[in-house]
């Protein structure tokens, strides 16, 4: 792991963000989807659609961080979606702790439609934190085959 940390100066973390259609997605639209380098977004109709498998799969495939962008308490379009998103975020967090994956790699940010500045600042902060944490060391190298029948 340490050898990877040495490279961090040039390192731009790869991030997947899951974006709620009713809040954060509107902000992304306003900024014309000019996202930081290596940040990709997946639009979902509600962040409650996300479950831990999305997050684990992203890490399995080697992303450096996962950002969940949903609505603040009481503002969910469907009333209960952000509660479910929080539950799933907590489960993923606890499991990641057991695995020894740094908790900084996963973040849930709740923003309203108009919280443009909050969103942009949080994104920047997330990227800076990931730069410090370093690349995801948990990516599986599947190129090398280990089994011969």
């Amino acid at each position: 792991m340490t050898k990877m940390h040495n490279k961090k100066s040039k390192f731009t973390p790869t991030i997947i963000s899951f974006v709620c259609n009713w809040s954060a997605y509107n902000i992304l639209r306003k900024i014309e989807f000019r996202l930081p380098a290596n940040m990709h977004y997946v639009r979902v109709m509600c962040l409650g659609r996300i479950n831990p498998s999305f997050i684990f799969k992203a890490f399995e495939l080697g992303v450096d961080g996962v950002l969940l962008l949903g609505c603040p308490p009481g503002e969910c379009h469907y009333n209960f979606g952000n509660r479910i998103a929080e539950e799933h975020f907590n489960i993923a967090n606890n499991v990641m702790h057991l695995l020894g994956v740094e908790k900084e790699r996963l973040s849930l940010i709740q923003v309203s439609n108009k919280d443009y500045l909050i969103l942009v600042r949080s994104m920047k902060k997330f990227i800076n934190v990931l730069k410090r944490v370093g690349p995801n060391p948990f990516k599986i190298d599947t190129s090398e085959k280990v089994w011969t029948p």
Partner: peptide, 24 residues
């Protein structure tokens, strides 16, 4: 068809990584 969206399969695959330092 993976139950739980394949979350448990992902966990198992992440565990193949030798550098992992679990808190188990």
């Amino acid at each position: 068809e993976c139950s739980h969206g394949g979350a448990i399969q992902s966990l198992m695959r992440i565990m193949t990584q030798p550098d992992l330092k679990q808190n188990r």
